[in-house]
């Protein structure tokens, strides 16, 4: 598996650390209520198909990345800097 880091270019999976689903970019407000927080902390989708994860390029430039990939075909569709994704959300 290779990931196209927006800064370093195409790199081997060994250089990256997998953090998990990219929900951390969408943290609920402190007063969002129990259901929202329960979902944010504990509940994860387990899709057969497209998924968005946070990866850390720890063996490279050190960027956090949002990787959109397919769990069925193993295709990596898109890699973005987490800071860009977060910046576009606010």
């Amino acid at each position: 598996m290779r990931i196209e880091c927006p800064i370093c270019g195409s790199r081997d999976r060994r250089e990256f650390y997998y953090q998990g689903a990219a929900v951390a970019l969408d943290r609920p407000a402190p007063d969002a209520g129990e259901a929202a927080w329960d979902s944010y902390v504990h509940l994860r989708e387990n899709p057969a198909g497209e998924t968005r994860d946070l990866w850390h390029h720890e063996g490279g430039c050190g960027s956090w990345l949002v990787v959109t990939r397919d769990t069925v075909t193993h295709a990596v569709h898109k890699v973005e800097l987490a800071s860009d994704v977060k910046g576009a959300m606010s």
């Binding site: 370093c8 790199r11 060994r14 063996g59 490279g60 050190g62």
Partner: peptide, 10 residues
């Protein structure tokens, strides 16, 4: 010049 790994080392 790149940042990468040598075996398991940064």
């Amino acid at each position: 010049s790149i940042r990468t790994q040598v075996f398991h080392m940064a």
